[in-house]
């Protein structure tokens, strides 16, 4: 959590706070990846490539509950909530609209925490394959995780057969978000 004190904060402080939030969050994705069965059996370069391509997407899934579509607010990791209007002043309008849209669609699926975690694993190993050395190993891992996710969801909801396809349709949404926004600048204060 990064202490940012509220409505009287400057845009600069909000931007710094936002940027600082990413560092611990990225480290947590690395730890999460190490816990995915089979991930550490991939070659190290492939692990690094998947993490570089997929981390933002995993974070987008993880933090989708921080976007309140009804109130049009975003809650940062320090618990501070900002209205969309304030964040637009940081030049993040298009990004936020796309994130709200994604969060609403994913939220409407009503996933349980274990389903969400397994979906995040699928997201990570489904990331862009540029630079991957052992494509077959990554594809096998992805297939296994997708099978596990399908099994988990359909066992729990045997009468609902549209949920899994709808969930998979979120993967291209995440790639679009990633491609549109990976070149956004973060600002870190030099003390």
């Amino acid at each position: 959590a990064w202490p940012v004190s509220g409505a009287e904060c400057t845009s600069q402080q909000i931007w710094e706070s936002f940027s600082q939030c990413f560092t611990p969050a990225v480290k947590e994705v690395v730890e999460f990846a190490k816990g995915i069965p089979g991930f550490q059996e991939l070659g190290q370069q492939d692990q690094v490539m998947l993490l570089k391509s997929g981390t933002f997407q995993v974070l987008m899934v993880r933090f989708c509950t921080l976007f309140n579509a009804e109130e049009r607010t975003v809650t940062f990791l320090n618990g501070q909530t900002y209205p969309l209007s304030t964040l637009r002043a940081l030049g993040m309008g298009t990004l936020l609209d796309a994130m709200f849209d994604f969060s609403e669609k994913l939220g409407s699926l009503g996933l349980e925490p274990d389903e969400m975690a397994l979906f995040m694993a699928v997201v990570l190993v489904s990331a862009d394959r540029s630079g991957i050395l052992d494509m077959q190993a990554v594809e096998q891992l992805q297939e296994g995780l997708i099978r596990a996710l399908r099994s988990l969801i359909t066992r729990r909801r045997p009468d609902e057969n549209t949920l899994f396809p709808k969930l998979l349709l979120r993967l291209p949404d995440l790639r679009t978000l990633n491609n549109m926004h990976s070149d956004k600048l973060l600002a870190f204060r030099i003390d």
């Binding site: 600069q12 710094e16 940027s19 990413f22 560092t23 990225v26 480290k27 690395v30 190290q44 692990q47 690094v48 993490l51 570089k52 981390t55 933002f56 926004h181 990976s182 070149d183 956004k184 600048l185 973060l186 600002a187 870190f188 204060r189 030099i190």
Partner: peptide, 25 residues
């Protein structure tokens, strides 16, 4: 006046990941 360094989101993520793997070598 405060000074800042700027980094793209992608570069920031790459940097953290590279550091983490280097630390654990």
């Amino acid at each position: 006046p405060k000074t800042h360094r700027f980094m793209t989101l992608a570069d920031h993520i790459s940097h953290i990941i590279t550091q983490d793997f280097a630390r654990n070598q």
